[in-house]
Design a protein around this nucleic acid. Structure first.
Lengths: 343, 343
DNA sequence: CGTTGTTTTGCAACCGCTTGCACGGCTTAT
DNA sequence: ATAAGCCGTGCAAGCGGTTGCAAAACAACG
């Protein structure tokens, strides 16, 4: 691997001159520039990014941190979409992406902090914020620029985030169902320890409350994002007999499908007897039968926004602080319809 | 940000001693170790990974390079599963992951080479090998350890790869269909420029040839991995009238679903009239109706294997060279059945 | 108690690039 | 012709670690 000095020697100049050429400094005469470039080319020289990072105290790299990867996490829509939005932006700015995974165990989360504590990345895009670990304070202590995808818990409102307003859109979904005459509506969340779950629950409660309905506690359940979680929720709620829900809202499409399957196995028709709404508008929603009405959450847009926010702050050498809310969109298909006439 | 020297001063030792403590060198007395650790703790010291990388000439990072990300790439099963397998292994070895995306344009591919040319990663896991760019030669020139996921074209047989034996398993799928009496079998590939496509096509041809069938050229089409690609293939092949296929094999599940949809819209029953087999055994396959018989390709296993191969080579300071083939598994569901009785 | 052997620690030279400062050469104004 | 100003380049001190070698400290031995 040739270094800057090899090039310098070959071109008959001082190493610093080579450095200047390669970092695009304008104070180099054209003739020297050509000479240096030629020498570099001949040697196959490529500047060493690590050395440059050390010297410049910045890496042009951002980390994407998954604080809590549940079973099937990477195959759900969230992560891939985020990845896409992120890469779009980083490639535009010439930034690199470091993936910091963790399974939610405290020690791995520390490991995740190290990545930036050890100055391997200039900033972090932080995903899937859990409530049981105070990552945000830890990040703030590190004085590292970071942007959350998703909203922080209220005690950290001030930090930078990009969110989809889950409370509000959940409320809208419930309103949509209310509007079709449903009175008994179930909410099947993912992981109760994740903030989004609380937010969606909140939206659910607000909507019902505004409609003058006080939901049974049995109408709320958690399915941890897997199909069987949806099925079990149905099983439990079916026991309520005539108090069983006529509509289900699930926090992802896979659970919604589990719900539909389970209902269909009870010979209930969808949407004639029971309505089901999912979340994320994944491919599954489009091809399920009946096709699933689903709340589209534009994760890739959110990620793109978060990333450009982050990179711009890094370039400006300041801490990101802006808060952005991205609109969602209920994609209406066949799985939800008017409430069945009361018996 | 405190440095090793700050810690040294506080602990009353030489910086090199601090370094030794933090790199786990055994030649440090217990008392000094404690003293150093205490000082470091007090200062909130974390070793700077960049500096360490520069000094040690290795970064403990591997890059995952996507040479050709088509529309929807990140949401298909391939990338996410690879990511998962990769992260599992890297986190075991304490390696970091750098994502190098590219859209297949030549200049972005160069950019991808830079990542390792500039010593930001110790090795590469290379995905989705296209035939129109000779990345492999370029990588070999860089003397950088790399492992392919997927087989290289024959001229590079010698390099390290982990593959799923696409030719052989495609052949098996076709045999499965042949075994159920199908004679007119279609192959709908993804992108003809990607090596896998050629391999699957090859397997398809071999199987038919062994069965004494010479396929019509019209039975082969490419759908670029999207649903509409599947639909269009059906549309074209339907024109063949009684020479239209009675069975379709598609290179991913989404195209298979497009095929099923399109057939169903022609009032053909699946599998009574036409059989369909997909690839990847994605969630879509399980929840399509009818449930899609699909060839499961264990990408995450492949990625895990490739990654540990790569990391082990890096640690041993040698070039990876082994070639591994991972078995696939045809997951039989409802979309493929006996060929319809001849008219 | 001196000698030898074994730890443990310090010293200093790197790793490869950046950058403030100084200096030489050239242009322009006086 | 000389001073002032600018441009292009060289010099050297970093950035924050690592590591071979040597010196110091300590232990064991005769």
């Amino acid at each position: 691997m040739p270094t800057i000095r090899d090039v310098a020697e070959k071109a008959g100049v001082h190493p610093s001159t080579v450095s200047r050429v390669f970092s695009g400094k304008p104070t180099i005469s054209n003739t020297t520039r050509q000479r240096v470039l030629a020498a570099a080319d001949e040697l196959g020289f490529q500047p060493n990014a690590i050395a440059r990072s050390l010297s410049m105290q910045c890496t042009h790299t951002i980390a994407i941190a998954v604080s809590h990867a549940f079973q099937g996490y990477f195959e759900d829509v969230f992560f891939p979409q985020v990845m896409q939005g992120l890469l779009e932006v980083t490639s535009k700015y010439g930034f690199r992406v470091l993936v910091a995974g963790s399974n939610g165990h405290a020690d791995e989360i520390t490991q995740l902090l190290d990545i930036v504590g050890s100055r391997q990345a200039d900033g972090i895009v932080m995903l899937s914020n859990r409530l049981d670990v105070d990552l945000i304070s830890a990040l703030q202590n590190q004085a590292t620029p970071f942007v959350l995808i998703g909203r922080p818990d209220p005690s950290h409102e001030a930090c930078a985030w990009v969110d989809s307003s889950d409370t509000m859109y959940t409320e809208q979904v419930i309103n949509y169902l209310l509007g079709m005459g449903h009175q008994r509506i179930a909410y099947v969340g993912g992981d109760p320890d994740v903030l989004v779950s609380k937010e969606r629950l909140h939206g659910y409660q607000i909507a019902l409350q505004k409609a003058g309905i006080s939901p049974l506690p049995e109408w709320v359940d958690y399915g941890f994002f897997v199909e069987d979680g949806g099925r079990q929720a149905v099983r439990r709620m079916s026991r309520l007999g005539e108090l069983a829900p006529t509509a289900y809202y699930a926090a992802n499409d896979l659970m919604a499908i589990g719900i539909m399957r389970s209902l269909q196995e009870q010979n209930l028709r969808i949407p004639e007897d029971v309505s089901v709404v999912g979340t994320n508008d994944s491919l599954l929603a489009a091809y399920a039968s009946p096709a699933l009405t689903s709340l589209y959450v534009p994760y890739s847009v959110m990620a793109a926004k978060a990333t450009s926010l982050l990179i711009q702050s890094i370039l400006a050498e300041e801490m990101p602080s802006s808060q952005t809310t991205i609109p969602c969109n209920l994609v209406i298909r066949a799985s939800a319809g008017p409430a069945p006439a009361a018996l």
